[in-house]
Design a protein around this nucleic acid. Structure first.
Length: 442
DNA sequence: TCTGGGGTCCTAGGACCC
DNA sequence: TCTGGGGTCCTAGGACCC
């Protein structure tokens, strides 16, 4: 079998042998997390809003039935939610992240090889499970997750990652399957593929869908039957792999060990527009501190950061401006004070009065393991002192909660006029002692 | 008259994902 | 009034090198 990959790769060592993947994901995951801790939410419409309470990013079936779409802005659905009694929550990532790791702990009991693909989805390798036993194992896994964490899931099984995603899609759309769909059988698979529109394929977005349409594709089966060479011509190696994956030939293997992160960013929309340099400095400084924290958690560093801010396209009347600048450091660092200083420097460099800025951020690409990074001959940071200080800051924040110790330059909570809205956040039940649910037994 | 060939690295931009 | 945040991969094209 020809390896369909853009670069020679040895990690797909098992590619070619018969594989089986299960994709398990949490149903309306964020909403389900909220339901675990509040039984009153069962069977009523629930939605969770994005950062800044901007738009709906998770909806229970009851909320979907009311016509609330994915990504719909909050201000457009507020009335509907009020009149229909929809329970609305701000994002509570501390809770969702913790619930996610609990769910993954359960998956690990069913297979030694799992890939945590996103906060609510994981691939589970079932290659060593007998074909006839896979669906049963999936049902068992699903029940165990439900019992131990309270999260409802759906599982799709297939010989490639793409087909397991497709199976998962079917499991979700067809409740009569009991939350598990196994596409191992070729005939059964072919029947389903003829029924599902190609837009549902994992990896097909609007641009690819237009190309596929032009090529006469309507269903998933049509894409499977494309000539792989033609697919490569119009859709690059990504398109060619897609065709093979749909044919049951695995081109993508599991990443069971999370690869070192390549980039990291902290960006936020402001709750109110920012027109003042001092406020912008404070906001970006806070983002920089947070970025440094994220890098420290993974022992990574960066020797340059991009600072950006821009106005909003939705402010039709005002003048528009979008700027960015790269600030280079003498050597890689993850010291909060170093990145904060770089951030403020960058902001001042590109600041211009007279605009109503809506969003700002700090981005770092090309992360390096800090210990292995090249030291500067001139301008090296005092890593011993800086590192000890940051260790102490991290320890305090772990113990007393994020934000317990911050740089004054990044602003205290109460003076942050720019900060993000979380007006309807539920308690962080599982990660904060003071927000733990209290149960009375009598 | 006539001006190589092949490689790497970097960046920007497009596309897609959750 | 009000429209999220944070990632990955791939390609083309330019700079540069020998």
């Amino acid at each position: 079998m020809a390896m369909v990959t853009s670069q020679s790769s040895s990690k797909a060592s098992r590619v070619g042998s018969v594989r089986s993947f299960a994709l398990s994901d949490g149903n309306s995951f964020y909403c389900s997390c909220e339901r675990v801790f509040d039984p009153r939410l069962a069977r009523v419409p629930v939605i969770v809003l994005s950062n800044n309470d901007g738009c709906a990013i998770a909806r229970t079936p009851e909320a979907k039935a009311l016509g609330i779409r994915m990504g719909e802005p909050w201000f457009k659905i507020r009335q509907l939610c009020r009149s229909e009694g929809v329970r609305v929550y701000s994002s509570n990532y501390a809770l969702y992240g913790d619930m996610s790791s609990r769910v993954n702990e359960v998956y690990r009991r069913f297979s030694p090889r799992i890939e945590v693909y996103s906060i609510d989805e994981s691939f589970v390798d079932l290659s060593d499970v007998r074909e006839t036993e896979r669906a049963e194992l999936a049902r068992d896994m699903r029940e165990t997750v439900r019992k131990w964490t309270g999260i409802p899931t759906c599982v799709g099984i297939g010989p490639t990652r793409t087909l397991s995603k497709l199976a998962n899609h079917i499991a979700k759309k067809h409740p009569e399957l009991g939350g598990v769909c196994d596409l191992t059988d070729e005939q059964e698979r072919a029947a389903w593929m003829g029924l599902i529109p190609m837009q549902e394929i994992w990896g097909v977005g609007p641009a690819t869908a237009r190309k596929l349409e032009a090529a006469g594709c309507d269903s998933v089966a049509d894409v499977r039957d494309l000539d792989p060479r033609m697919a490569r011509k119009s859709m690059t190696v990504v398109g060619e792999r897609l065709v093979y994956e749909l044919r049951g030939i695995a081109c993508l293997d599991l990443e069971t060990v999370a690869p070192t992160r390549k980039g990291c960013a902290v960006t936020r929309s402001f709750s109110d527009r920012v027109e003042d340099l001092a406020v912008m400095e404070q906001a970006v400084a806070a983002h920089a501190s947070r970025l440094a924290e994220k890098l420290r958690a993974q022992a990574l560093g960066t020797d340059h950061v991009t600072i950006f801010f821009h106005t909003s396209e939705h402010d039709r009347d005002g003048p528009q401006r979008s700027v960015s600048t790269v600030v280079t450091l003498p050597e890689a660092s993850n010291d909060g004070l170093v990145l904060l200083k770089a951030a403020k420097f960058g902001v001042r460099r590109i600041w211009r009065d007279g605009y109503r800025y809506s969003k700002a951020g700090i981005i770092s690409t090309d992360l390096v393991p800090l210990e292995a990074s090249q030291r500067a001959l001139i301008g090296a940071f005092d890593r011993e002192r800086g590192g000890a200080l940051m260790d102490a800051v991290d320890a305090c924040n772990r113990r007393f909660g994020r934000g317990a110790v911050v740089s004054a330059a990044a602003g205290l909570e109460r003076e942050r006029s720019w900060s993000t809205k979380f007006e309807m956040r539920s308690p962080r039940y599982t990660t904060r002692l003071d927000e733990m649910p209290v149960v009375a037994a009598c």
